[in-house]
Write a protein that binds this DNA or RNA. Structure first.
Lengths: 114, 114
DNA sequence: TATATGTTTCCATAATCCATGAAATATAGA
DNA sequence: TCTATATTTCATGGATTATGGAAACATATA
């Protein structure tokens, strides 16, 4: 549900976590590293990661003692698609600038929606 | 702040209100009409509209006894741009499908929904 | 003025969310 | 095994939020 995803991002700390993970890329980051970088207590960070994970925005994998979190790019894409689908009901003035950004930052390869 | 905007949408009722207003277009809808359509008490609806308004997602104008709410398309576009800007740090796999949707729904040629 | 309609504000209650200390779990290495 | 590191889970108090009844406010009409 979109509300769940939006709720997960509608929090200063969690949004920062998500951005850090986006910046980290597919390789992800260890929970502890995120906590240190954002100066957040380990258990608080754990709760925030749990929230993002439950929303499907990130996923975890274990690597030794660390647990690596990484953005689920498909889910992220899905949220954006939902929002654009929600907004594009015939109103080109909304997504025209969005289209401009999307096409300028991404290769001009056309991809079919899932 | 993005958190404020995301928080405003991260609520079942408010998201429904916002979608109704998006569907209504620039002409907007009267507060009472939205309340009746969504079967919500007038005061509850008022609070939800206030929240969306404070987030800048909608704006109000008076028309006789009614108060008409309409989506602030610029703010809506801004949120989408923020989210895409946040996600597009070199990761074409995210916004490539987004670009496909944006470009397919916005050009004046095709306004057909998928 | 009086009355009806549309919307908001006030208020109380219930529900939910958030951060943190403390304890528990999982892994690695000696 | 013991100890250290990494992370999660539990319990709790405090803050915030959501809802709806009742009242107030704003407008229209007569």
């Amino acid at each position: 549900m979109a509300v769940r995803t939006l709720s997960a991002l509608a929090h200063e700390g969690r949004l920062s976590v998500f951005r850090a993970l986006v910046k980290a890329g597919p390789g992800g980051m260890a929970a502890g590293d995120i906590a240190r970088q954002l100066k957040t207590a380990a258990n608080t960070m754990s709760a925030q990661l749990m929230m993002l994970s439950n929303a499907g925005l990130i996923h975890a994998r274990r690597d030794g003692r660390s647990i690596i979190y990484a953005v689920d790019f498909e889910q992220m894409s899905g949220l954006l698609l939902f929002l654009t689908e929600d907004c594009c009901g015939g109103r080109a003035e909304i997504c025209a600038p969005l289209a401009a950004v999307a096409t300028s930052c991404c290769p001009p390869k056309r991809r079919q929606r899932a």
